[in-house]
Computed example of a mutant assay.
Amino acid sequence: MTVRDTAYPDGTPCYIDLMVPDPRRAMDFYGALFGWDFADQGDEAGNYLLCSVDGHLVAGLGGSAPRQEAPAVWTTYLATSDVDASAAGVSEAGGQVLTGPLDVLTEGRMAIASDPTGAVFGLWQAGRTVGSQLTDAPSALIWNECLTRDFDAARAFYERVFGHATQLLDDEDVTYATLLVGDRIVGGLGRLPDEVPADVPPHWMTYFGVTDTDAAVARVTELGGSVVAPPTDSPYGRMATVADNQGVAFSVITVAAEPDPDRR
Results as ranks from 00 to 15, higher is better:
V58T: 10
S64Q: 15
I142A: 12
V217F: 02
M205W: 03
E195L: 10
G100R: 07
S234P: 04
Y30G: 08
P66Q: 08
P235C: 12
V242M: 06
R184Y: 04
V20E: 03
P230I: 00
F250T: 03
T175F: 02
G63Y: 02
S91L: 10
Y236R: 11
R160D: 15
N245R: 05
Y236H: 14
R219T: 14
L189Q: 06
F250Y: 12
M27P: 02
M19S: 15
Y158I: 06
L223V: 10
L141M: 14
P71T: 07
T80C: 10
G118C: 12
S52K: 04
F38G: 06
V174A: 13
M205V: 14
D173I: 03
L168W: 05
R219G: 01
D40R: 10
Q96G: 04
R238C: 09
L18N: 07
A59M: 10
I142D: 07
L141P: 02
D82A: 10
R264A: 14
W124A: 13
L134W: 02
A229C: 03
W74M: 02
R24I: 11
G225L: 00
S81H: 08
L168D: 15
P261G: 06
L223E: 01
A88C: 01
A153E: 09
C51F: 03
A26R: 01
V20W: 02
D214S: 09
D170H: 09
H203D: 09
D22I: 00
T178C: 01
Y236F: 13
G31R: 01
V161M: 07
L61N: 08
T80D: 06
V217R: 05
M110S: 13
M27S: 11
D173P: 00
G118F: 07
A113H: 11
V161C: 09
T75C: 11
I253C: 12
S139L: 09
D103L: 05
A243G: 12
Q96S: 14
